[in-house]
Design a protein around this nucleic acid. Structure first.
Lengths: 194, 194
DNA sequence: ACCTGAACACCGTTCAAGT
DNA sequence: ACCTGAACACCGTTCAAGT
C-alpha cells in the first residue's frame, strides 16, 4: 500500500468529528507555521485548532509529519504554476515566470521557507509524488527553452530547486523585503545562454 | 567601552586556568558546530572541552553567544580572502575568486552554514566590526570591476552576502557534494555585464 | 473510535556548594 | 575567582482515563 492509498483509506474511514478535527489541526498548523516558522509549539497549534494536544498527535505522529503535510500542499501549488507557465508562448518567459511565480508562492510562508532550506531534516519521503508531478511540466518548459536557445544549453530541471532554495534563503534572511527580487534577477541573468 | 575592548580586558584579567578553559570550550564548540551544526548540546560541548557545564556558561552566557563567537572568527577569514583577492590583477578574476574562495571557506562548517542562512536569529551585534573589515576590500574589488566593465554596472557589495547565503543553502541541502559549484557558476554568469 | 491533559524525556540555563 | 553538577524551565511526545 503506497502512502497516498493509506492516507485516502484513512480519510474514508474517519469518523465525521475526527475528520473535522484533523482538518482543523492541519489548518491551524499551516497558518502558524506560515506566520512564525517551524518554531511554533505543538500546544499552540492544538489550542489554535480548539483541540487537546493528544488529538494533534492522534492525527499526526510528530511535528515533522505536520510539516511534511504542509510542504505537500505547497508543492501542489508549484505544479499548478508550472502547468500555467507551460502555456506561455515565449520560451524564455515561461522559464522566468516559472521561477518568479514559484518565488511569490513561497514569499508569505516562513515555515515553508525553512523547510525548503532543509533546516530541520524534513521527511521528504511522503512527497515523492508531488515532486514528480512538478518535475514533468518543469522539464518540458526547460527543454523547450534550451532548444529555442533562450537559456544556457546546460540548464536542467535540477537547477530549479537549487536556485529556489537560494532565493528562499534571501527571503528568510530579509523577510518582508523585496531583496529576493534582486537575487532572482541575478539568477535569471545567469540562466541566459552564455 | 566597545565589545572588543571589553573582550580584550576580560582576556587580560582572566586567571590562567580560566583562560585555558575558555579557549578549550570555544575550540570544542567550533569543532562540534562545524561537524554537526547548531544542534549540538551544551553538555556535549562541555564534556568535549573537559569542563563542567557551569564553566561553559561562565564564559559564554548562552549557546547563541558561542555561535556568535564562532561566526566572528569565520568572518575574519572572509576578510583575509578579500584582501588577497584584491591583489589579483584581472578585475573579473578578483570578483570570481572572492566568491569562490569564500564559498570554499564555508564548505566544511555546517554550523556556520546554518548561521549564514539565519536559521537561529544570531546575535549579529558583536560582529559589526568584522563585517565592516570585510566590506572595505570587497567594495574596492567590486568598484574596480564595475569601472572595468567586468561585471554588471549595478553590482554592489550588498549582493555578496545575499549570493553567498544562496550558495550556502545549496551546500547545506546537499552536504559533501559539489552541487554548490554549479550554483556558484550560475551566479557568476549572472554577474557578468548585461 | 476518538478525545483529553497530566506526566515523562530531553536539553538549555541557573545557582548553591565546593576549591 | 573560578569550577561543578544537581535542579529548574520549557517543549515535544506518550498514555491512562474519560466519552
Amino acid at each position: 500500500m503506497t502512502p497516498s492509498e493509506q492516507k485516502e483509506q484513512t480519510e474514508r474511514t474517519l469518523r465525521a468529528d475526527a475528520r473535522r478535527n484533523r482538518e482543523r489541526v492541519f489548518e491551524a498548523a499551516r497558518e502558524l507555521f506560515a506566520r512564525d516558522g517551524e518554531g511554533v509549539q505543538m500546544e499552540e497549534i492544538a489550542s489554535h485548532a480548539g483541540v487537546g494536544i493528544g488529538t494533534v498527535y492522534r492525527h499526526f505522529p510528530t511535528k515533522g509529519a505536520l510539516l511534511t503535510e504542509m510542504v505537500r500542499t505547497r508543492f501542489q501549488r508549484f505544479t499548478e504554476i508550472a502547468l500555467a507557465a507551460e502555456q506561455i508562448e515565449d520560451p524564455w518567459e515561461a522559464v522566468a515566470t516559472l521561477l518568479t511565480e514559484s518565488s511569490v508562492a513561497v514569499e508569505g510562508d516562513a515555515g515553508f521557507q525553512m523547510a525548503m532550506m532543509g533546516v530541520e531534516d524534513l521527511e521528504w519521503e511522503g512527497i515523492e509524488q508531488e515532486k514528480a508531478a512538478f518535475a514533468a511540466p518543469a522539464e518540458r518548459i526547460i527543454e523547450r527553452a534550451v532548444e529555442a536557445g533562450a537559456v544556457r544549453s546546460d540548464m536542467s530541471v535540477d537547477d530549479i530547486p537549487m536556485l529556489m532554495c537560494g532565493i528562499t534563503s534571501t527571503m528568510y534572511f530579509a523577510p518582508g523585503g523585496a531583496e529576493w527580487r534582486r537575487h532572482l534577477d541575478l539568477v535569471l541573468a545567469g540562466l541566459r545562454p552564455g
